[in-house]
């Protein structure tokens, strides 16, 4: 099966030593969890995980041209 392209966006201190936004290729149906671990994060560091602007569970399978956004636990108001 051909690999899929997923846009990954990182925020706050997740950007340090990594990137703001980048396209990565994965096997079809790869779970958010695998992508997160592959970037060197611990799962416990994740505050918010969004796929295409909506909150997604860690086992959510990704599709071609999905956008995965990762935030640490931050907040404000």
């Amino acid at each position: 099966m051909a690999p899929i392209t997923v846009t990954i966006k990182l925020f706050a201190h997740f950007r340090h030593g990594r990137f703001k936004e980048a396209d990565h290729q994965f096997p079809p149906g790869v779970a958010c969890r695998e992508v997160i671990l592959g970037l060197g994060f611990r799962l416990g560091e994740m505050g918010i995980v969004m796929v295409n602007g909506q909150h997604a569970p860690l086992d959510h399978p990704l599709s071609e041209r999905d956008t995965l956004a990762l935030f640490p636990l931050v907040g404000g108001g």
Partner: peptide
């Protein structure tokens, strides 16, 4: 950590 580093504008 979050609020002290980035303030409310992290939103």
């Amino acid at each position: 950590q979050g609020l002290p580093t980035y303030g409310t504008n992290v939103l």
